[in-house]
Design a protein around this nucleic acid. Sequence first.
DNA 1: CTTACAATTGTAAGCGGTTACAAAAGATAA
DNA 2: TTATCTTTTGTAACCGCTTACAATTGTAAG
Lengths: 342, 342
Amino acid sequence: MNIKEIAEIVGVSSATVSRVINNSGSVKEETRQKVLAAIEKYNYVPSQVARSLSTNDTSIIGVIIPDIENPFFSGVIRGISEVAEQNKYNIMFFGTNETPSIEHSYLQIALAERLKGVIITPISENDKHTRDMLIRLKQAGVPVVLVDRDISDVEIDGVFIDNKAGAYQGVNALIDEGHRKIGIIKGPSRSKPGRDRFLGYLKAMEDGELMVRDEYIAKGNFKIDMAYERTKELLSLDDPPTAIFTSNNFTTIGCLKALTELDLTIGKDISVIGFDEIQILKDIDYKLSVIERDAILQGREAMNILLARLEETERTDKYIKKILPHRIILRGSEKIRTTNNI
Amino acid sequence: MNIKEIAEIVGVSSATVSRVINNSGSVKEETRQKVLAAIEKYNYVPSQVARSLSTNDTSIIGVIIPDIENPFFSGVIRGISEVAEQNKYNIMFFGTNETPSIEHSYLQIALAERLKGVIITPISENDKHTRDMLIRLKQAGVPVVLVDRDISDVEIDGVFIDNKAGAYQGVNALIDEGHRKIGIIKGPSRSKPGRDRFLGYLKAMEDGELMVRDEYIAKGNFKIDMAYERTKELLSLDDPPTAIFTSNNFTTIGCLKALTELDLTIGKDISVIGFDEIQILKDIDYKLSVIERDAILQGREAMNILLARLEETERTDKYIKKILPHRIILRGSEKIRTTNNI
DNA sequence: CTTACAATTGTAAGCGGTTACAAAAGATAA
DNA sequence: TTATCTTTTGTAACCGCTTACAATTGTAAG
């Protein structure tokens, strides 16, 4: 069933049917009713794809995210989708699984699908291909908003937090507790948050006049398994750290898993502060200190920026890097009670 | 930049350009190269929307899910998106947030967007509007696959688990530990899993020759807050239950939150078995007994069924209700050590 | 050098809508 | 009644691609 068939049935032209569908132009009330009746009767649903082609406009925005299983990102998507729903936009979802080639092909698809806008957490800060594609999108008039991970050398809107400051506060809290041997499970250094959080660690160490020891710096990839292994390695050092800073929620979980296995209690045998709140642990009063931020808000804000871009008539050159708040929540895991280790 | 412009630049017809893009028909190698060069040079990306209109075919499948923040559903989406990616399908994501009217409008959009298929976890088992829309989709040749929640009176493929059996096992494990006063935080009864899990509870109680007490049956909605409140209510009864069965992951969390607040330890002061594994608790060796199932697998299987439907030439009438395995994992929280209560 | 057939390319009609413009029909005022 | 303005409706081009069919060119055999 298409518009022409409906038109024929009612005995009008397709232009008239189009008018009643879109509430545009003027249509006699009687005609309108007849058309609506036919649409209803035949369950006619206008093709959005034909419409898109004709108007050269879609209502679909692309959301490109590394890992939907990470609660932070599902929160972001939740925020995006709330605002999108309220504004009649639909979401095309892409999960890159931290794989650059997949990210690239999704960006290509965004171009091909003529998406209205793109919200992306890019895998890497310096991926040339990704950067080029994002520029092409912008040039094609498709606004792009970064979430959580910034990209260098390019003028793109985004919403982030101050990762360096957050990590600094976390590590600093450990130092305040008297720790001098502080390890870190890093995130991937190709990502801005991974690097910035590490920089925050370094800065805090420096300000605390503590030596940064290479063997205390564990390379991670924001994944549970890797953090688990690295933690075990850190603790099997001859002179292991007394405190560990973990770079994101999954890293924290992997770390806690290892500690649990080694029968070490946080806040007692060893100290831990992690980036990202872990909701369930809070609910069961598991005393983990964290750097917390609002994922849903971050998603909402990203979508709001996108909406603003879509509404602006003339392209403003000023681009927005919005920094959302974070806060440190100390629950005791930054402390330590063993006397022989510190 | 469109196909005609490329054609002009190269000095061929748009048909020829189309042929090289699609690797269809035959094109002289020399021509092909010239066309490819122009495409490359001008960064031409064929419009997927024009293509869709022309071929009357898209590669977009709709995924309609209640709550992306629930790890079970993000797992499902992960599974779907993996298989989709491998098969060159894209995902249009819709989060209903358990709101029927939103679900309805999303189904309408699925129709309008001419989606290739739909995977949905419907909010309710008996929503007439939703059922009608799903039937319309099927009639329009759009395969539909249900995930996790079945719908009554309609022949639609789906992948589920045996909720009743799962709940039965859980409650039964509690009974085996000697519990006679077992409460349940129900899920929403409009949903099949909510009802089935409750039925499993009833059956286990019946088989255990235990009295089902109304005040032990707490209505829930699969949300944390509600479960939290209900748990507190259960425990403030004059004769509170000694064990609680919780109907899904969020329900379990809400329950644990209340227990924590009341300073009750599971496996000691009170017993709990919950539906759904909670990964992080497992990692930190928090002894929670659960009914576990594989969310990613469920997503993969749903997408596989959809793919099969899309590939079948003639419409088979046999529809598939796939039941995936679940298993009970006892970690001690089904036990109780207080002597005065049981 | 034809002829016959295969390979290559072009023409033009869709796909299902929207919309500028023109035409027709009504309404109002003189 | 006529002229004028408004409202309603229709015509047809267009959005950017695909594809059936026709036309052209190339090639090998006769």
